[in-house]
């Protein structure tokens, strides 16, 4: 897929939780096709502590209005600076990067989309893909507490949403792999994005139950296009770049001890 460098215009930037915001950008040149699970690299202006671009999952697209949205958690100086963008501001972005989730060749009829914390971000576009193909996806989200569960009402428009929280403030108490829905339902593919311990737990469940599973990894990156070889993950094919060969991998490609 061709990659682009665009100056995108901020349409809106609003908080969705105490530490997370939704950034919607307009692409005046026309938004290119994006696969669910692909990401963008943001140039961060005006932050002395931020030198490199910031890789951020694509959350949603609107091909008619030429807008692309990002659900971003403020984790450091770069994302903090991006949260201050105002409508009309310009931001330099490379996109679409990476491979994205495999939603065609796996032919899933009963997919589970599992997300931890802000890891739900790319699952929205993936859920939209399934919904638009007549398949109702099931979402299973985990968070430390209720305020870590993001945009639940919007996900509910696409499919059934289940949740767990560590403190029991919403949904079932525990982690996503403890949820009863995994005992009661037979999903044919699991797509997951979130912190590594959560991904490994989900991958372990998938392996034990013989379910295909794709995970989206988050590694520190520089270039975002497979040139610098900084963001590697050890796989059966050797060190692969998360930015170019990922961020989505099938669990059997990985060398995880699960």
């Amino acid at each position: 897929m061709k990659k682009y460098q665009f100056d995108l215009i901020v349409d809106s930037c609003r908080n969705v939780s105490v530490d997370t915001f939704l950034l919607k950008l307009t692409c005046p040149e026309g938004l290119p096709e994006v696969n669910p699970g692909q990401f963008a690299e943001f140039m961060v202006e005006g932050s002395a502590k931020t030198f490199l671009r910031r890789p951020i999952s694509i959350h949603d697209t609107d091909m008619v209005r030429n807008t692309v949205s990002f659900l971003i958690r403020k984790v450091g100086a770069g994302t903090e600076q991006l949260s201050k963008l105002k409508p009309g501001d310009s931001v330099n972005v490379l996109l679409p990067l990476g491979n994205g989730f495999d939603c065609t060749s796996l032919r899933s009829r009963y997919p589970l989309l599992a997300g931890g914390g802000v890891g739900v971000a790319p699952l929205y576009l993936l859920g939209k893909y399934f919904a638009s193909h007549g398949i109702s996806p099931t979402f299973l989200f985990g968070g430390r507490t209720v305020s870590n569960l993001l945009r639940l009402e919007d996900f509910e428009k696409l499919g059934k949403v289940y949740a767990t929280t560590d403190d029991g403030s919403f949904g079932e108490r525990g982690v996503v792999t403890d949820h009863h829905v995994l005992q009661n339902e037979n999903f044919d593919v699991i797509y997951a994005c979130g912190p590594t311990p959560m991904l490994k737990a989900v991958a372990g469940y998938a392996l034990r139950n013989g379910v295909a599973c794709q995970v989206s990894l988050e590694h520190m990156m520089a270039c975002g296009i497979g040139a610098c070889l900084c963001c590697v993950e050890k796989t059966r094919k050797g060190n692969l770049c998360v930015c170019k060969d990922g961020p989505v991998f099938s669990i059997e490609e990985l060398l995880w001890q699960i």
Partner: peptide
């Protein structure tokens, strides 16, 4: 050459450190 294990990169003020190791 396989190169060095991850993490191979760290952002620093106005620069970066890398330890790719000739992969």
């Amino acid at each position: 050459r396989e190169g060095n294990p991850y993490p191979r990169m760290a952002e620093t003020p106005s620069g970066m450190l890398n330890a790719v190791g000739l992969q």
